[in-house]
Simulated scan of single mutants.
Amino acid sequence: MPPINPLTAKLPVGDLPGWKQVFREDFNAGDVPIGAFPGPAYEANWSAGYKDGIPDTAGQTGKNSRYYPTKVLSVKNGMLDWFLHTEKGISMGAAPTPKIPNNSSNPHRANSLLYGRISVRFKGDALPGFKTAWLLWPDSGVWPRDGEIDYPEGDLATSFYGAVHHRSNNPHESDLIRSYALFTTWHVATMEWSPGKVEFFLDGVSLGAGTSKVPNTPMHYILQTESCLPVCPAPTTTGHVYLDWIAIWTKG
Rank of each mutant, 00 (worst) to 15 (best):
21 Q>F: 01
19 W>H: 04
22 V>W: 04
35 G>D: 14
24 R>E: 12
30 G>H: 09
9 A>C: 06
44 A>V: 03
10 K>S: 14
45 N>W: 01
16 L>V: 12
41 A>I: 11
46 W>C: 00
8 T>F: 05
43 E>P: 02
8 T>W: 02
32 V>S: 09
24 R>V: 07
22 V>F: 03
13 V>Q: 15
40 P>W: 06
43 E>H: 08
12 P>I: 02
35 G>Q: 01
11 L>P: 00
8 T>V: 13
23 F>R: 00
24 R>Q: 10
44 A>I: 10
21 Q>N: 13
14 G>I: 03
26 D>C: 06
14 G>A: 15
20 K>E: 14
10 K>F: 04
37 F>E: 01
17 P>N: 08
17 P>W: 08
16 L>W: 09
36 A>S: 15
38 P>N: 12
43 E>Q: 13
43 E>Y: 09
10 K>I: 14
33 P>C: 11
23 F>N: 01
8 T>A: 12
40 P>K: 10
19 W>N: 00
17 P>Y: 01
40 P>Q: 09
21 Q>A: 00
18 G>V: 13
32 V>H: 05
8 T>K: 07
30 G>M: 09
39 G>D: 08
28 N>P: 02
20 K>Y: 06
43 E>N: 09
14 G>Q: 08
28 N>M: 13
34 I>Y: 05
18 G>N: 08
19 W>E: 03
14 G>T: 15
13 V>F: 04
30 G>P: 10
13 V>G: 04
17 P>H: 03
45 N>Q: 14
32 V>M: 04
37 F>L: 15
16 L>P: 00
31 D>T: 13
15 D>M: 03
11 L>D: 11
16 L>N: 04
26 D>N: 14
33 P>K: 09
11 L>I: 07
42 Y>A: 10
38 P>A: 06
36 A>W: 02
16 L>Q: 15
21 Q>L: 06
28 N>D: 15
